[in-house]
Design a binder for these strands. Sequence first.
DNA 1: TGCAATTCCTAACATTGTTAGAAATTGTAG
DNA 2: CTACAATTTCTAACAATGTTAGGAATTGCA
Lengths: 213, 213
Amino acid sequence: MLGIADPPTLTRREREKIQLRQAILDATQDIAAKEGWQAVTTRKVADKIEYSLPTLYEYFENKAALLAELNREGYRQLLAVLQHTRKSAPSPTRAILDGAQAYCNFAWQRRELYEVMHGLSGVVLETDSYHAEAQALTNEAQTALEDWARSEGIQVQNATSLNDAVQILRALLHGIASLAIAKQIAGGKKVAAALALRATADQLNAWKTNGKI
Amino acid sequence: MLGIADPPTLTRREREKIQLRQAILDATQDIAAKEGWQAVTTRKVADKIEYSLPTLYEYFENKAALLAELNREGYRQLLAVLQHTRKSAPSPTRAILDGAQAYCNFAWQRRELYEVMHGLSGVVLETDSYHAEAQALTNEAQTALEDWARSEGIQVQNATSLNDAVQILRALLHGIASLAIAKQIAGGKKVAAALALRATADQLNAWKTNGKI
DNA sequence: TGCAATTCCTAACATTGTTAGAAATTGTAG
DNA sequence: CTACAATTTCTAACAATGTTAGGAATTGCA
């Protein structure tokens, strides 16, 4: 199922290359976290890894490719968080509600990743939004919602309606997270997280009342 | 209540200045609508109004000030749309639901304004998000929701909870609109608008079931 | 030890936001 | 009508940033 590991037949050079590539990604994230995405400049990244400017371009075709990689990385990390949350939840309902909280926490704690995932704060996305990592996140959400529906005896009409329901929950959480990041929610992140929880619970209740999704 | 009109004691020069300022705003919007915000460059705007580059800076301190003005303009236009929608709605419930549709339509039809209002698509916002225009929009939404609650016999506990409810609806709509603009909603804008309607109705039902906001 | 490939850097170029300072225009006083 | 002062507008530059050409330095190996 996984397909992660290659046989470790890597030369020292190859290992160094992988490390340097990762260092570039880390440096970029670090600058974005500390100074915001407007401050992320190719020269600053190069300075931080203590290599000269053109070296960056040996590892990433251009700045957009660097951001695209961090975009995917963000989806991978969010997926991991949500999978972990679901697996340690005591019930399918809690899996959804805890997931909503975890989503918000990810948005604040990894703000720079969340921004690059959604083209916020001046990030220019040239990435196609339908990469495998984004799809994997949708699948995770569908699984969680399907589990919940089954546990509540709620009928899922078809794949489309399940997907619609997932989109609604996602849009709700994304709306709250992005408004909070833009400081447009009075009361800040604490209030925002509470709103997310409440609205998610309301939406689940609406589906429960309808008896179907 | 209004305070719109000054006595029309304007010299020809002053009238021309106002027109040129407006031409700059129009040109900027036009480029953004046709080619996207990444393509909006001070030189291109200057070309479009057939003046040289430094002339721009006589009318706007810098590019950020130009975007800030369009940001406010977007809020004014959205407010006008929502006020009109509410006033021509046959019932408070329909006022909310029609408002949700109108919100989505505004986001697609004036995409470039919606983007500059929320810092999407590479726009860098240096504007404070709490300007008067944003506040006016919140007030409009609160009025609509208060009307609805009254008409349904639902108790509004206090100003904070009313504001929280408005934030939830706003976040829901913004989440759907911004994901649709980023082409992250399968089925596109038509499906997105349907989701917005459905989710808004669900949220109203949840409050109705609770009997309070 | 010397050659070939790789790695890495200095120095440039194009684009874009911004501004200095001069030219051109306009309005006004003699 | 003319000359001066204010305003308007432009040409030309500068700084920052993404990107690349081409050469120097290093490395691996015969």
